[in-house]
Design a protein around this nucleic acid. Sequence first.
RNA 1: GGCGGAGUAGCUCAGCUGGUUAGAGCACCGGAAUCAUAAUCCGGGUGUCGGGAGUUCAAGUCUCUCCUCCGCUACCA
Length: 497
Amino acid sequence: MKKPFFITTPIYYVNDKPHIGHAYTTILADVFARYYRKKGAPTLFLTGLDEHGQKVQEAAKEKGLSPMEHCNKMVPQFTNLWDKLHISNDDFIRTTEPRHKKVVQMILNKVFESGDIYEAEYEGLYSVSEERFITEKEFETGQFRDIKKLKEKNYFFKMSKYQERLIQHIKENPKFIQPNHRKNEILGFLRKPLNDLCISRPKSRLNWGVELPFNSEYVTYVWFDALINYISAPGYDEDHGVSKDWWPASHHLIGKDILTTHAVYWPTMLMSAGIDLPESIFAHGWWLMGDSKMSKSIGNVVDPINLIDDYGVDPVRYYLMREMVLGQDANFTIELFKSRYNSDLANDFGNLLSRVTTLINKNFSGKIPNPGDLDTSEINIKNDSISLCLSFDELMKNMRLNEAIELVIRFISGVNKYMEQNAPWKLVKEDKRAAGKVLYTAGEALRISALLLSPVMPNRTKTLLDILDAFDSNQKWGGLKPGTQLNDHAPLFPRIK
RNA sequence: GGCGGAGUAGCUCAGCUGGUUAGAGCACCGGAAUCAUAAUCCGGGUGUCGGGAGUUCAAGUCUCUCCUCCGCUACCA
């Protein structure tokens, strides 16, 4: 059996308005999940929502709802978007679910029993108006009033105890934190002594959370709660640990803003609980909306999500996946979107399909012609397709999705060249059989390209494969069945003016 | 301040352990073709590889230094 593939997105904060960042991470996970499923690996793609914490409690109060009612109302904001984006998650976890809270308490107990939790006074800057402790950084912004120093009894997790082990682990597992510059950041961070982590909040201040199993006067700190979703969803119990079917996770995909929690808090929590660490934590970059001067206040920001209504989901997914080098920031503008769409999808890919199907319709009454004996140029295309598939897999394994996509388009471009060189529209007048061979070859190339791009654009590639009646075919050369009647179709990627 | 990353064609970027005339895509100009979504194909780049110095037979690629931009420097979620 193939190695299982377990990929996660962060659980998004239920109070947030979903934006391009949420969409990007989730599509990215979706593409990898679809890719591995197609490869035949047992796949678990998990996303969900983080529903506890001060802000939820406050927002609910403002609306005169219970926190739970408030959360239930917010959930569709996300799930509707996932539907719209054709996200194929296998599970959707909410931290308010019993199956999750149970595990959080089990882990808290486990860590407690390991002797890694102790009581102490927490002293910090407390904002009376905000009713919460604020960070040094927040204090420096000067945006908070009524600040005083406050002491409070709390529980702490001995994170510092695992510092050396964590450093060791990061060094021994180069893929644990990716990309490399993020790993360096964390190693830099770990050069200074780690503080212990305050993991409790007294209910007098905050009661919307998971109760500490060893003191019912407290709930646990949201991060301690949230991170555990990665094991509560696949399943955890005290006797067997995390479900062996899925753990350790293959990738935790995250935004760079939550690297520390994932690369420091989470692994040390797992160490204390005696659980293996995930295989990799991958922090991607952010989408910059064109000129950074563009801002919401000016109101000229184009939300890429709106592009879906105009141009369809698949082109938007394509753009996001093709344009961002995983791990770096990227720019989003309508101009770039259109340019990428037209040159890659309309001109190269979609247009090639039109050329091939039109020629087959005109000259072969719409039936896929016979491949015949392959000549050098056909063998070249065939070999290109074989090496394309190999390179594609290699790049996907290394999280170089944008390059993988680029290779496919390059291959398509080569097929356009091949069409030009062999000119089946001329050839058909002299040697119909030879023309058929060219069209078969180009059709095969389209079929294989569509299969490769299907995790990125599941709908449009299905349309293409259906036209060729090859939806269930595989990447091996020769999947098109001669004599198959082509299905009618409109341009696959109509050009945008 | 400390640590880390980046500065390569108009734009977006490739260039691993130093080695033939520094590359790709897009855009742009010229031509060919006309099966196709006016799409495609061919041809066209004298780029101070951020500045300066150094190591070397040889540096975009290593060292030093300077300039510019960015990220991290935790316990809000």
